[in-house]
Amino acid sequence: MKTVYTFIKFLIVILSLSPAFAQVQVGAWQIHEGNEGIIEFNTPDMEARIAAFDQAKIPAKSDTKWELAKTQSDGTVDYPDLGRNVKKCAQQLDFTYFQTSVFIPKNVDLKTFTVSYDMADDGARIYFFNSNHKNGGYQPGSDLIGNASKYKEVDLKDQLVKGEENRIVIVQYNQCTNNSIRGVRIKVNSKEVAPAVLPIKFRLHAYSISGNRVETGSDYWMGYDKNAQKKNAGDGNKPYFEGKIVSPKDATVMEFEKIDVDKAKGIIALKLLNSPIPDLYLQVGNDKLLTLYPGTPASGRGHFYVRTPEEKEAGGLNYISLETAGYPANGGWFLRHQGYVLKVTQADANARNDKVYRQDASWLFEPVK
């Protein structure tokens, strides 16, 4: 009886502490250069610079032109020079947009939720979207306006909705020479929360199977059958394995190590950690199928860019897509699964209009130790 009583007390303590263990998820920051182009608009004074935000046309969350934003090592957005497209100072506007997704569990004790930027030039404003603000909202006073304006922080605790995905959008504009935004960060209860970033070691979960998504997570992963080794007679009889979608009970789930090939360009290689033979890397074959092939990839066949998920409903919370970097040479080819086979497909307009393609080319990453 004493043992049962002790366990009940322990359980009560754990449950009472659950808000402290609940995690606020922040997706990777994305950047969009805008669809409106250069806008003719005069900004001779502060009143006009505030009114300039009304000229912005925030791209839809699902707009295909969103790309992963450049960040510092701590995950903060950092653009010291966004480019100078404005030709007529104080007479034109050039907008750039940044977005992220935020999920706040219902049991989190949220005292503050702040978004801040260290510097912006010429103007920046923070917007939020959720079920209470379907058309977007912003807090007056959240703007940074002026040449190299320094630091602004806004608390969105009362504007965000727990238990659902909230969208945060920063609208930045250039109206003269310098064009920059730096040090965008999010803090929860005064503690900085880093955006989701692909970890060094991870495995990849299929977003959906045959177009059917399981909200709680299906049991299908990027993997291979270690008992089905093949050999390439035309390349020194090298052994390799075909990549496919697997269930852990039937085959081996791939566990990858992310290898930086060109950090400045964001190009990576994917080395298999749980390999039956040394130095296997995920690579694209001549038939556009994915294999685990030995040897450090020396070409684009085994080089990839980490992209925002092709299926925009994924929301950016630990979801990615992988684009090949150099093979095929004309670009725009994404790693996907089809009929449980891993392959690359070109993401043309027809593909991106196909929900099954978008889901099959989107992956949920899970860190591994």
Rank of each mutant, 00 (worst) to 15 (best):
H32D: 08
L82K: 13
K57Q: 10
Q30V: 05
R84M: 05
A22T: 06
V77Y: 11
Q30L: 11
A56E: 00
K57T: 00
T64Y: 13
D78T: 02
D74G: 04
G27R: 07
P80I: 09
L93F: 13
A90C: 08
L68R: 14
K65T: 02
L110E: 04
D118F: 14
A28E: 12
D109R: 11
G37R: 12
A48K: 14
V24A: 05
T114E: 11
Q91P: 00
V24K: 08
P19S: 15
V115N: 03
T112S: 05
A22D: 03
D74F: 10
L68Q: 03
T114I: 13
A52W: 05
K70H: 09
P19C: 14
C89N: 14
H32W: 08
W29Q: 07
D94E: 11
S73G: 05
Y79Q: 07
E33C: 02
K57F: 01
S62Q: 15
E36F: 00
A124M: 13
A56L: 06
G123M: 12
E40C: 02
T100P: 01
Q23P: 01
V26G: 03
L68E: 03
D81F: 15
A56I: 01
I126L: 12
A48H: 11
L93D: 01
F41W: 13
V115W: 15
T100Y: 04
S62W: 12
T96S: 02
G75P: 12
K61W: 09
T64H: 14
A56M: 04
A120M: 12
D121Y: 10
G75F: 10
G75D: 06
F53T: 09
N35E: 05
L82G: 05
V102Q: 11
Q25Y: 04
V24L: 07
Q92H: 06
F98G: 01
K65C: 01
H32E: 06
V86K: 10
A20E: 04
V77A: 10
D63L: 05
R49D: 01
K61G: 01
Y79I: 08
F41A: 08
N35I: 06
D45S: 13
K87M: 08
D121S: 15
D54P: 02
V115Q: 08
T71A: 09
I58D: 03
K106L: 11
A48L: 04
T114N: 14
V26C: 04
I38C: 02
A51G: 04
Y117C: 04
V77T: 13
K111M: 02
N107C: 00
Q23R: 15
K57A: 04
K88L: 00
Q99G: 00
Y97D: 01
T100Q: 10
